[in-house]
Amino acid sequence: MAATGRSERDLAARLTDSAFVRVAPRADGEAIAAAGVLLRALSSRSIPYQARVVPLVEDPPDEATVPIGFPDGFADERPATAAAADLARDLDCDPDPGLELAGRLLGGDDPETDLERRDGVGIPTADLPDGLAHSTLFHAAFSGDETAAGAELADLVDDDRAVASLTALETVGADAASERAATAIERALRPHVTPEGPFETAEGFADVLDCLAGDAPGLALALATGHDVRTPALDAWRAHSKAAHEAIREADTGRYDGLFVARIAGGPVETIARLLRDFRSPEPVVLVVSDTTAGAAGLSSATAGTGEAMADAAGAVDGTGGGTSTRGVARFDCPPEAFLESFREAIA
């Protein structure tokens, strides 16, 4: 369903006349942000709704009125949050600017916005050691370790530019940093301030949503719809981040033609794969494999679709898999090496 022009207005009219709306976002930060924009608009119009986050390995439920984040579904080629924001306006509801921008940033969009930008790093908290240590917008020597982050900041004056410079140097200057790191770190710098939102910056809001999407989708959806869940959301974000950064340091890695592989004992495989793709991998596709789960992240030009490749690889070993064009997850009950070979065939 293309959410543009006339069809978007038609959808708004149908939602207004609906007795009950079922919204089904995928377990992806962008899709959940888009769902939050739409659900807030439905609530403002007193339109009854039900919302359920759908795991990446599942198809949207047949009864869904508005599936979000699925191929050939709501928004088609448009960023989901951009389409949801326009739909909300058609419902006479102005989207929350921080939530809208967070979702659009997660979708790789960089729209014009009235939100002020400042120097520094896009973290969700006002506490710098906490925010820098637990951010998953980058991977640096101090990532996952609040004490180490505090020590790095100890000799700095209270200057946002100095903090941004430190973060960039620690990220891009690492011996293992990839060429893409210099570009990837930019999404964390000069953040947009969100004084009316639950977090300090839109970039920090996006980071929290993305971390919660897989681990705690219900909490992510509650956050996106405006419920007061800041404290548990930050707790979940910290735990997720710490596990991801520790797993990166302890991973056994290998390189194939076009593929970078990391073998881990456990952790949030999607986030680990994304961080490795952006800051460590010399190859365009990353596969992170534990004993029973895998996550993949690829550049948009790397394959026909990372999620599609994960689905194919999982299907070949009687597992389940799926995802988006640039990220995917899989579950399997076979030796991890067998899944790796299956994935290599799927992206060949």
Rank of each mutant, 00 (worst) to 15 (best):
A302Q: 13
E250R: 11
M310N: 09
V208S: 06
E270K: 11
I185Y: 06
A220S: 12
T292M: 03
S178Y: 11
T292P: 01
M310D: 09
D257W: 05
R249N: 02
G307I: 01
A309D: 04
L223P: 08
V285H: 09
A296N: 05
V285W: 08
I272M: 12
T303D: 08
A177H: 10
H240W: 00
P268Y: 08
I264E: 01
H192L: 02
S241K: 01
P284C: 11
K242G: 02
M310F: 10
A265K: 14
D291V: 13
D312L: 14
A296C: 12
R249V: 00
L276F: 09
S290M: 12
S178L: 08
R230C: 03
K242E: 15
A273E: 12
R274L: 01
D252Y: 03
T183C: 00
G258A: 11
R255D: 14
L275N: 07
V269Q: 12
R255G: 13
L299H: 13
P232F: 03
A216Y: 00
S290E: 12
S281T: 09
A174G: 05
A311M: 00
D175G: 01
F279K: 15
L259P: 09
C211P: 02
M310Q: 09
H240Q: 11
A182V: 12
A247L: 04
H192I: 04
